[in-house]
């Protein structure tokens, strides 16, 4: 018997990072392969985008609604109630919607992908696909990651729209403001410098969700409990990625002067 080899923890972290980078390369290499799985991409878009819409819509609406109600007393104190639409619009679009929606989707989508691929791995379906000569990365991973990258920004846009609607509803509890005036005020403060970084950011959040979910699922161990571990660590890691990416994004946009 060979000797027990001790692997220090930092080496494990490096190994994990290396594996993730290799997995990422496999993903990028397989995007541009012949025979793109359009049909599966559409199905994944349906599962990830359309199926998440109710959750995202309710969240977006309530976030806008609650933010308005929370801001109202303070803004009233300063006599700046007319600034509520602008304040809510800017904070929703720049920061709150992208991050909250991404975190919610990390919970719903990344765990779903992690569990699905994890159980496929455990029941040898991934290997069966591989030995049959089909390309599991192309069929399972590329479609899911791309679907996330397309759908998370769209979900975010929907949430932002509904968030503004929620804010409008929140304002109309106390007083009557016409929708034209509200949206006019909201949009005067938003620039492309707010919308564009937010949109690009969500594409990366989508990538993080899809990638982490696929990586954790695809590399889960044998045994039933590893499916749970894959789903759980997918959510945890995707959320962490999102938060870290958000911190980097804010530095980048500030440095670029948006």
């Amino acid at each position: 018997m060979a000797q027990e080899i001790y692997i220090p923890s930092y080496k494990r972290v490096l190994e994990e990072a290396g594996n993730q980078v290799l997995f990422m390369f496999r993903f990028f290499r397989n995007i541009f392969r012949f025979d793109f799985e359009w049909n599966e991409l559409v199905r994944q878009c349906y599962m990830i985008g359309y199926r998440s819409f109710p959750l995202v819509a309710i969240t977006g609406f309530i976030v806008g609604f609650v933010m308005t109600l929370q801001a109202e007393p303070t803004m009233k104190e300063f006599g700046a109630e007319s600034y509520i639409p602008r304040m809510v619009a800017v904070s929703l679009i720049r920061e709150i919607c992208p991050v909250i929606i991404a975190l919610i989707c990390a919970g719903k989508v990344a765990s779903g992908i992690g569990a699905e691929l994890g159980s496929m791995k455990v029941t040898e379906q991934v290997e069966a696909m591989e030995v049959s000569g089909a390309n599991p990365i192309q069929y399972l991973v590329v479609t899911r990651i791309l679907a996330c990258m397309f759908m998370i920004p769209l979900l975010n846009i929907a949430a932002e729209g509904l968030g503004l609607l929620g804010s409008y509803a929140g304002i109309n509890i106390g007083e009557h403001v016409s929708p034209v005036l509200f949206f006019n005020k909201a949009f005067t403060s938003i620039t492309f410098g707010d919308l564009l970084p937010s949109f690009i950011k969500t594409v990366f959040f989508g990538f993080a969700i899809g990638f982490v979910g696929c990586y954790k699922g695809y590399n889960s161990d044998r045994g039933t409990e590893s499916v749970g571990i894959a789903a759980n660590s997918a959510v945890v890691n995707a959320s962490l990625w999102i938060i870290v990416m958000d911190a980097i994004a804010v530095q980048l946009t500030n440095a670029l002067g948006y």
């Binding site: 349906y46 920004p153 919308l195």
Partner: peptide, 23 residues
């Protein structure tokens, strides 16, 4: 599923373009 995905994508893009136009 295709139709629903299509509608969802289309609606999202309309919202995005609408926002861009308003800004």
């Amino acid at each position: 599923q295709k139709v629903k995905t299509g509608i969802f994508t289309f609606a999202g893009l309309v919202l995005l373009i609408g926002g861009i136009f308003l800004i």
